[in-house]
Design a protein around this nucleic acid. Structure first.
Lengths: 209, 209
DNA sequence: ATAGAAATGTGACAATAGTCACCGTGCAAC
DNA sequence: GTTGCACGGTGACTATTGTCACATTTCTAT
């Protein structure tokens, strides 16, 4: 399949042509770090397949998952960092093996003025990510850990398009900036409430979660 | 003083001219709600004097302060909402009496393609607000309430350019989505530690806060 | 000056979340 | 098989935050 095929209903033909000329397809394996906090942003990724996980790390190394970047999406924060040559404030990891197009800074900037569909894509992406951050803030400020855990499981399920989540309790605790024992207990309670089923390294979400 | 005077080192002359022609100066009194969650965004404000407070409200009415918009700044989230005719996700309140320029949607959109300094301003604003949201997330995810309170006091002090904060404990608790008694106790502890001085409806920040 | 309202102080207790210690289970490599 | 290890379960304890009840202080309006 042509690489730009999946974008043909989003962008105008001339822009697609530029895609062909200027964009480098790249790939990364599950777990690979695409971009780390403090590193300068050299290219902007548009995901073709797989998923990127965007997270925030504090100075003691604790992590908090922010959101996922799915196919045909991009990460808003790289746009703005990139265009002004600022270091990244977030970490991007390949959640599953991922293929993406790398957009050079120069093109990004030029296209904003030239192609309305590109400008619109950028603005749409920025809006979407703002809303994701606001949802994170809502969760942290207003919800207890059990509600946050449910939200986390649902988002993970969406990102992987599966009701099976292949993670240890420890990994979940890390992505939520909590601790393993607490998460284990809350998961147990969800299982007792018939909302999920627990296996080793795997959680099955039931329909009434 | 000419209204566009304070922008003359940021924007090119032709854009300033458009400012004169198309922008309506507006004002609001302390406490006025400029924009509420769910309401559609009709204009984008650029603050001339005073301060806007941007906050998030949950479904039970609890509030969380996100950041302030100071003179010569704007609110990134209105940009993206505005350009796509989406309802606002945040509430904007006049923190102090405020004057601002209202930018119509049409102009906003057109200028992005036409004036590099405007595009740059928009991108800079978006980046700044992303970072503010990330700081909020850091606070909520990684810091205890006492640290958050210190951060809150410092930000408030910056926003008002004063080491005197004229707020009741109750108001602070509200903006932090916490409760009055807890905030009172933590403030008391800060006073004992010689970090602040407490008065009725007023807090004086000391230099070693 | 005094009453009433708003703001603050405080003790006691509950709920939530984090930590420590230790155990058992199941999986994988040999 | 059995050994070793990652994973998960659990009790006991601590820390943090929230809640309730009520006392005290300070300001304001009359």
């Amino acid at each position: 399949m042509n690489i730009t095929e999946q974008f043909k209903h989003i962008f105008e033909p001339e822009l697609l042509k530029e895609f062909e000329e200027k964009l480098k397809p790249m790939s990364a394996k599950e777990g690979d770090i695409i971009l780390d906090i403090g590193r300068s942003v050299r290219v902007i990724p548009i995901v073709l397949s797989g998923t990127l996980k965007i997270s925030r790390i504090d100075d003691e190394g604790r992590e908090l998952l922010l959101y996922y970047v799915s196919p045909v999406e991009s990460c808003a924060m790289t746009f703005t960092c990139c265009m002004q040559q600022f270091p990244s404030e977030v970490k991007a990891t390949a959640e599953k093996d991922v293929e993406f197009l790398a957009i050079p800074i120069s093109a990004m900037d030029e296209w904003m003025m030239k192609y309305p569909t590109w400008k619109s894509f950028v603005m749409k992406t920025i809006r979407a990510r703002f809303n994701e951050l606001l949802k994170s803030i809502d969760q942290l400020a207003f919800q207890k850990l059990d509600e946050r855990l449910i939200y986390y499981l649902k988002e993970k399920s969406k990102a992987t398009s599966s009701s099976l989540i292949n993670l240890s309790h420890e990994q979940i605790a890390n992505e939520m900036a909590s601790s393993r024992e607490v998460i284990s207990r809350l998961l147990k309670r969800l299982e007792n409430d018939k909302k999920i089923l627990l296996y080793r390294n795997q959680i099955k979400l039931l329909k009434d979660l």
